[in-house]
């Protein structure tokens, strides 16, 4: 099957997460923020686990962070993804973490605490999601 015909598995979109993907489509890496106690959280959830408020907004992340952990996936190879696939757990400058893909880096060069920055990936089908690359 040709690469261009196969796309990644898309997220299910519900009331608690669709807004985040809408922001990604606009080029924004969003971090949910409690409107009462101001604590940040990710992945998004409807209630703040610190103060139990369901009032929230979000901030636009700087996109700067460091690699907290990572794995390089070799097998099995699913259609819609490029292998070896570098998956990173990024500790954002704002303090929350996000699971993402590292691009522009050789698999044997990814390392713990490596500074990275967000780059918005746009797939052939127009779907957008945040990737990270080594800080430039």
């Amino acid at each position: 099957m040709s690469e261009s015909l196969v796309s990644r598995i898309k997220p299910v979109l519900g009331l608690d997460n669709k807004w985040w993907w809408d922001q990604a489509a606009e080029g924004v890496l969003a971090i949910q923020r409690c409107q009462v106690c101001q604590s940040l959280r990710h992945p998004p959830r409807p209630m703040c686990d610190q103060c139990q408020s369901q009032e929230w907004d979000f901030i636009s992340a700087s996109g700067k962070g460091t690699v907290c952990s990572f794995t390089v996936l070799h097998h099995p190879k699913f259609p819609g993804y490029d292998y070896p696939l570098i998956i990173v757990l990024v500790e954002l400058a704002e303090g929350t973490r996000i699971t993402s893909q590292l691009t522009g880096c050789e698999p044997d060069e990814v390392d713990f605490d490596m500074p990275v920055e967000m780059v918005m990936q746009r797939d052939a089908d127009g779907f957008q999601l945040p990737y990270f690359r080594p800080s430039q």
Partner: peptide, 20 residues
Amino acid sequence: VHWSWYQVYGMLTPGSWIAM
């Protein structure tokens, strides 16, 4: 919704999750 945060990036198997 929980699984989708990982699947979208190609983390689809138990091995990929445990490896992190």
